[in-house]
Each structure stands twice: as C-alpha cells, then as structure tokens.
Amino acid sequence: MSESTLYDLVIIGAGPAGISAAIYASRALLTTVVLEQTSPGGQVLLTSEVDNYPGVPSTSGYELIQAMENQAKDLGVTIHSAQVSSISSTCDNYFIISCNGGTSYNAKAVILASGSTPRKAGFEGEEDFIGRGISYCATCDGMFYRNKPVYVVGGGNSAAEEALFLTRFASEVHMIIRKDHLRAQAALVDQLQQNEKVFVHFRTTISKVEGKDLLTKLYLHNEDTDEITCISGDPGSFGVFVFVGQLPSSELIKEFAELDQTGAVITDEYMATRTPGLYCAGDVRSKVLRQIITAASDGAVAATSVAGYLGQPIAG
C-alpha cells in the first residue's frame, strides 16, 4: 500500500536525532512523518543513567527520550511504526521509502537517523551464546547476574559506564582490555579505580567461550605471555558483556552516500549527503563524538537544512 501523500520530509529513526529533527521540521511547518521500527529512543533506551545532558543533571535514557517524544507529539509530530526496507529516488528527485509489509511513503527529502547496532567482539562462540550468557546491554541483563562475576569487554566510555552500572548487581566486574590502557574519559577511569568490585585486565582478550544451553566456560588470552586462562562455572554463574563500539545502520543509503571505513555516512556540516535532499543525523553519521547531545544537534541541523533545501528556512 502506497500513501498518496507527498511529505516534505520523512525521518527514518526516532532516537534523539530523529526526534530533534522532527521538532525542528515541525517548527518550519514541513509536512513530516517519522518512521521507527521499534520503540522511540533507540540505543538511549538501554542507558540506565544520563547525567551529561545539559539542563537535565540526572535522568534515565527512558525518561529523557519520553520527554523528547512528548514534546514532539505536542507539536503535532507523527510517528509511525514501520521497518524501512529500501529507499529509491524518482525522476523528479523525490524519494520513495518502502517498508516491510508493502507500505511506502513519498517524500521530497529524507533524514536518515537510524543510529547504530552493537559491534561484535569476534571471539569464538560469541554468536552462539548471545542471550545465553553474552549480552550487549547491561541495563537489560545486569539483574540476571546479581552476586555473580561478570566480564566486560571494551575499554572506552561505554564499556566503563556499563561496568560501573554492573557493579550494582555483580559480585565482581572484570574489564577485559586488549590495549595497555583504558580509553575512557579520566573521570570514568577514576571511578573504576575507586570501585573495589572492578578488576581491570590489560593486554587481555577473550579467545573463546563454551557451554551447552548457557555459558559455562570462558577462555582469557594474555597477549604478553600467550597464557590461556579458563574461567568455568555452572550454567548462568557468570556473564560476558561486550561494549566494543557500534556499527552504523547505513545500509539503506549506501548507493546514495559516501561511507567511511566503519560504514558511517559522510556528510557535510549541513548533514547533507552527496545526494540532494538526502540528509543524515546521529550515530549513523561519521563523527568524532557519539552522544545524545550530538545526535540531537545533528537532528536540528539536518531539519534546518531540509527546510532551506525546500525553500522554507527556519528562523533562528
């Protein structure tokens, strides 16, 4: 089923970038629809605590995105539940956004705000035990490891934040770091060092995991000594949490945009791709910092750029 409406703008993704773009598009009186395949919020919903968003000193990811969504809806923003399967262009430089189930949308401009998905660490057995001892979300699964040891793979900000969150539940939190240092911000490193539940293992990787229905064995490889240490226990007696980055969800527009080596979309400062009328915002973009505030900023810039592209600039 194809909608007969020709929208000024279709926004794909209802995370901070998409919702911010929708708010600014609404202010510019652009006819807009936001398409989201799950619940509004994206990766933000997995964040238990947000304490670096200006003006909101302490909140949860769910509460923050709920406030954003309510603000957008109060401005008349429409969010449809839809999984986009493809984007194509027409001879008159419009876009057709096709969704699973046969629905499609027509638009003069598109903002891709599809975010990213967790990157796999790549050790043997990882795929086999996802949801059965291996997780990519401390908020979702931390409670299952109350008074049990957990192993956190990664040394960046996300890994540090999630490791600190896991100390609420776990008896011990072991950080598995391939390099000889943590890449997280100094304030986070200081918190890790002061927490007696946290143990950091530098120059160490997971070589493989084993088990039956649930994880029962974990093999740690010391990169300096080449020593392998086997951690074993009853099914469900320990868990592995992987935080080694994100994979940008850019597949939809790879034919219309340039991608960097990670698969993130390269845009100019106006969030524009090489295809007129196609813009990107948030974690799907190639950028130096992926945070809620930078996603929201991208969305505002992208919507303002769309308004200008369509001849309806937003007043400052």
Rank of each mutant, 00 (worst) to 15 (best):
L112F: 05
M143L: 11
A138I: 01
E63L: 12
L188N: 08
G316R: 06
Q194D: 12
S207G: 01
I293E: 14
G102R: 10
L46D: 07
V209I: 00
P149N: 15
I292E: 06
Y309P: 09
V198N: 02
E63S: 13
S250P: 11
R290K: 14
K148I: 07
Y279M: 09
K287C: 10
A264Y: 06
T167Y: 02
Q191L: 14
F256A: 10
Y145L: 04
D224V: 10
P40Y: 13
D8L: 07
H201G: 00
F202G: 00
S26K: 12
A28H: 03
I11L: 05
Y62Q: 11
A25S: 15
G299E: 11
D74L: 06
L35W: 06
Q66Y: 03
E36Q: 12
D268T: 12
G233C: 14
G277A: 11
Y309R: 13
I96D: 10
I19H: 07
E269K: 15
G245Q: 04
F123H: 00
S81I: 03
V33P: 12
T267Q: 02
T225W: 06
Q291Y: 07
D180Q: 08
R168P: 00
S60W: 01
I266C: 13
V44G: 04
K208C: 01
T32R: 09
Q193C: 09
Q185F: 06
I23S: 07
I11T: 08
T204L: 01
S89E: 15
A160I: 08
L75V: 01
V110H: 05
R168I: 00
G41A: 08
F95R: 04
V265H: 06
L289Y: 10
V306M: 08
S158W: 02
D268Q: 12
L30Y: 10
L46V: 00
L192G: 12
Y145W: 13
S171N: 07
A163L: 01
S48Q: 14
T78E: 15
A281M: 13
A159R: 02
N106C: 14
N157G: 02
D74H: 06
Y53F: 15
L9S: 12
A300P: 12
